[in-house]
Every structure is written in C-alpha cells, then in structure tokens.
Design a protein around this nucleic acid. Structure first.
Ligand SMILES: NC(=O)c1ccc[n+]([C@@H]2O[C@H](COP(=O)([O-])OP(=O)(O)OC[C@H]3O[C@@H](n4cnc5c(N)ncnc54)[C@H](O)[C@@H]3O)[C@@H](O)[C@H]2O)c1
Ligand SMILES: NC(=O)c1ccc[n+]([C@@H]2O[C@H](COP(=O)([O-])OP(=O)(O)OC[C@H]3O[C@@H](n4cnc5c(N)ncnc54)[C@H](O)[C@@H]3O)[C@@H](O)[C@H]2O)c1
Lengths: 256, 256
DNA sequence: CGCGATTTGTGCACGTCTTCACAAGCGCCT
DNA sequence: AGGCGCTTGTGAAGACGTGCACAAATCGCG
C-alpha cells in the first residue's frame, strides 16, 4: 500500500531505535489513526491536515496533534501530514513492520469466527496456529490452518515465533491456557474469556468482554431514561435546555 | 441467584431513583465487580472485604472502595460488603433489573458466534432479533431465532423494546445500519465494524475492534523487545534493576 | 522577496483518575 | 461495658489526560 521507503529507524542512524515511551492513552489511539490513514491513502490523499485526520478518526484535532508530536515532528506547518510517511511511522512505532504471529487457543463458537476472519492480515497480523483441547476438534481445517491439540503448544511455539496468544476458551480453562502460553514464552495475551487472568510481571494482558460493553451501554440507557423521566433537574423553571441528552465518550461527526 | 429483596430505588422511597452520576471510569469497572461478585456468591461467600473483591476483580482495593462509595454506603466497617446486596445495587445502577433486548445486525462470521453465545442471558441481556441484508441468510434459524431482513427493523423495533443495537456488518455498511438503528429509536450501539460511526447527540456508541487490541499489544511487545536489546538505559552502570520489564495497565495477582 | 493564509507543535490551565493514609465505625471477646 | 482488631469511607496529593489558544514555521502568490 505505502509507496514510501521508510527509514527503518525513525530519524538518525547509529543509535538504537529507542522507542519514545508514549502515554498509554496515545498508544490506544494510534491504531485508530492508522486505520483512518489507510482509508485516506486508499482514496488518493497524499497529505492530510490534523483537522481532517482527527475527524476521520473521531477525535479532537488538538489531541491528535499532541499524540503525533510524541512520535516526532512529521508534519509540515501550513500543509499537514504526509499520509504515507505517517503510516510508516505509526506502523514502525506499533511494531507492525514485521507481521506478527498470533496463536489462537479455543476454536469454538467465537474461535471459529476469529479464525475465519481475513481482516487481520491487513492490520499486521497472521494467525499462525489454532489450538484446542477437544480431540474432536483437532484436525479440523479452517481457512487453510489445521487445528492442533493444545498440548502441542511448545512445539508450535518453536516452529512459529508466536508474538501474541489469543484465548477464546471458556472462562474456567482460561487461566490454565494463559499459564501454558506464558510457559512457552508468550508475553502478550488477548483474553476473550470473562475472567481475570493472573500473569507474571512483564506479560501484558488485554481483555475483551462483550457483556461488559453491553452493561456499560445499559447504564447509560438507564441514566438517559431516568433523566427524561424527571425533566426538572434542580430548581430552575425552564431555562434553555433544548432537549439534549448528554453524550459520554462517544465519537461524533465525520465527513471528508 | 440473589436471595435479597432489594429496595428498587436505592435508599428512600418517594423521591425519584435519581442515578448518582458516576465517573465514567467507575461505570466501566462496575461490570467487573458484578462478575466477581456473582462468582463469589456462587462459591458460597455471604460477605467480602474490599481487599477480597478487589483482587477477584483485578483492581486496587482503594479504587474499589471509592467506586463503591459512589453508589452509597453499602459496606459494614470491620466486616465488608454483603455480596447479595451489592449485586442487587450494582445491577440496579447498571439498569440490569430488566433484561434488555438486543438487536444484532449482520449475521455473518462474527454475528453467528454472537447469536450462538448463551453467556449474555446471565449478564442481563436477551438477543431479541437477528437481522441481515443478504436474502440468502434471511430465514435461517440460529438458537431459536429466525434471521429477518434488515428492512424489517422498524417492525422488529415495534414488537420488541430494543434497548441496544449491535453492528456486526462489514465496515462499509456500518454507518447505514447505525442510521437505521437510530431511526427506529435505538440510543445505544455496540459496533464491531472497524470504522467511526457518526450518530446524533444522545446516542451512545461503543466499539470493539480486535485488530486495535492486537496492535496495542504489538506496541508493548515491540517496546519490550527494544528494551531487552539495550540493557543500559541512560548512564547508570548496573544499579538495582533485577531484569524486570514494566507492566502497563494489566491486571495482576489474584488468589482467594 | 515579502506577505498573508494556513497549519503544526506546545505551554498552560483545567478536569479526571488514582493512590495513600487515616479517622470513624463496627463487631467480637473478655 | 470497654477495649481491640479489622475494615470502610474519604480527604488530600499527585499523576495523568484533555483542550484551548497562540507562536513558530511553511507554502503560494503577487
Ligand atoms: N461466542 C461469543 O460470541 C462470545 C461472546 C462473549 C464472550 N465469549 C467468551 O469467549 C469464550 C469462548 O466462547 P465460545 O462461545 O467460543 O465457547 P465454546 O464453548 O464454543 O468454545 C470454547 C472452545 O475452547 C475449547 N477449550 C476448552 N478448554 C480448553 C483448553 N484448556 N485448552 C484449549 N481449548 C480449550 C473447547 O474445546 C471449545 O472448542 C468464552 O469464554 C466465552 O465466555 C464468547
Ligand atoms: N469475524 C471476526 O472475527 C471479526 C474480527 C474483527 C472484526 N470483525 C468485524 O466484524 C464485522 C463482521 O465481520 P464478519 O467476519 O462477521 O463479516 P461477514 O462478511 O462474515 O458478515 C457480515 C454480514 O453482514 C451482512 N450485511 C452486509 N451489509 C448489511 C447491511 N447493510 N445490513 C445488514 N446486514 C448486512 C452480510 O450479509 C453478512 O452476513 C466486520 O466489520 C469485521 O471487520 C470481525
């Protein structure tokens, strides 16, 4: 996609790449910018202003500029950011210059959907192994990959350089699987099971719990309902509040 | 599950329930506490200390106490929290006293997994409708629900009181689906498509983007690698840094 | 070559979130 | 009844994140 040859290391040669340690909030937004930039590149944009990129990513433009400034000065005042260059920079910082190998453990309901998803390739990842404990699932082929028994994890890890483990087993099995992943040297885990994992220091865990997302939405739904139920909030008679409900965290307004 | 009769409204009768407006960070953690509490209740605990609940939920105990204090004073000093009472309180605040109806739009790869998942029922939700635009999918039955055409959304919304819409369509269709959901009165949306949705004020959107989660993990993986590559950080010779890698955000240590 | 239009990068103030530390409260035991 | 140990609830301080507003930089044009 990107037609630029990026420097490999950010700026100067000689010294170590030395990742700037970014604020965690910034790290969480960089992937959004990256996705927006890929879209922009695809639609032929060579450069983009902070305003344009910000609205494409659904954030405030000042925040975006501050985020990008942490990577270095890759914009041009009066012009904007070079899309291809920025793509390369963000991919470099996120460690996406190499396609990272992902091992998926638990090929059930959800695991099948993940294994069959072809969208990860374009975002820097390659599902390198499918593992399950159920003998009747072992041997099944999904998307060109054969499901192997979870006990083969050490062998699999030796074959492929597994960078990230994804857990899609029932909650009761998740801790054991996490332990197995850690044992073979995996230091990044994405957990879909609704439970807390305990891992040694140096191992990162991120979790995705859909029920939690729904419950957060439910809270706001509940609050919105209780607000509309009592229109008078406090003592003021009917001052200038059109009928607006507060938004919380949400992305708004796009429009290229 | 809960054997307590909870008050309905938090404390006093007469006045409106009047949800305390909780910090957003607290709202995001309440579901975690709720899940941990359900586990504790199931294993026979009648009460739990902030320390115990905190470690079960993977957070700091001071943070947990402050979070709970926002709901009111439901603990007993010297003793801890009554598990059943706290479950009821949190469920009330999150608006889970009624089972909320969810409409799932896009019954493809991922949508099938969601539709077939039986874990939502225990967390306060009921998948009430499956919708898709593909005529060849319409009519298919999943888990006792028949897939209907997305154009029937207005009728579906009239039949069921849809509280939350879930979008599991390709990104290119997501905005149109969101618009349709908003048009039939849905004010909470969970979006799995990797794109920014534009919605009117008063509508909450939460997104789940798996590739973003992986990319965040990739960043930390990259950083860990670049750190181990250069053991000397700065000028100090070899001061007392065992060999530890920094953890970021992650949950650690459990153990009941 | 200089000027105005434009847009980045950032200092600063503000708000939110986290964590510590401890007084106040509760139950139990003597 | 009184004292003791335990645990909650919270004030205060610090860390972190956000957004405004503007100086500095760059481009294009006359
Ligand atoms: N399906 C969904 O839409 C959905 C939604 C939210 C959360 N989740 C969570 O995702 C996880 C997976 O859900 P699912 O619906 O795919 O469940 P599932 O039961 O369909 O699949 C689980 C798979 O894990 C395998 N497994 C069990 N123990 C294992 C072990 N020790 N090692 C390796 N594999 C093992 C099982 O053989 C099975 O194939 C669950 O924790 C669930 O709560 C799923
Ligand atoms: N499958 C995964 O594991 C996975 C992982 C990450 C992200 N996602 C995202 O989730 C979304 C769904 O993924 P998928 O793999 O299920 O895709 P899919 O192509 O298998 O399914 C999409 C479904 O949406 C339906 N659809 C298309 N346009 C529609 C419209 N206007 N109204 C209603 N339905 C419509 C299609 O008919 C199809 O059934 C995508 O945006 C994808 O990027 C999926």
């Amino acid at each position: 996609m990107s037609q630029h040859r990026h420097p490999g290391a950010p700026g100067r040669a000689g010294a170590v790449p030395a990742l700037p340690d970014l604020p965690e909030a910034t790290v969480a937004r960089l992937p959004e910018y990256l996705r927006a930039l890929h879209n922009l590149a695809e639609s032929g944009h060579e450069t983009v202003s902070s305003e344009g990129l910000a609205s494409a990513a659904g954030v405030n433009s000042a925040k975006l500029r501050k985020d990008l400034s942490h990577l270095g000065s890759y914009g041009t005042r009066g012009v904007g950011y070079d899309v291809a260059l920025l793509v390369d920079q963000i991919e470099y910082v996120l460690g996406l210059t190499q396609r990272r190998a992902v091992a998926l453990v638990g090929v059930g309901n959800l695991g099948h959907a993940l294994a069959g998803y072809d969208g990860f390739a374009g975002r820097g990842f390659r599902i390198a192994a499918l593992l399950d404990a159920d003998p009747s699932r072992v041997g099944e082929e999904i998307n060109g990959l054969v499901v192997r028994h979870v006990d083969e994890l050490p062998r699999v890890a030796a074959e492929e350089a597994i960078a990230i483990g994804v857990i899609a087993t029932p909650a009761r099995a998740a801790q054991a699987v996490a332990d197995q992943l850690v044992a073979v040297g995996v230091t990044s885990i994405l957990n879909f099971a609704p439970c807390v994992l305990s891992v040694p220091e140096g191992v990162d865990v991120r979790k995705v719990d859909l029920a939690i997302e729904l419950q957060i939405l439910s809270f706001h739904e509940h609050r919105k309902a209780s607000l509309t139920a009592l229109p008078a909030t406090g003592g003021s008679a009917l001052t200038a509040l059109p009928g607006g409900l507060a938004v919380t965290d949400t992305q708004e307004a796009i429009g290229t």
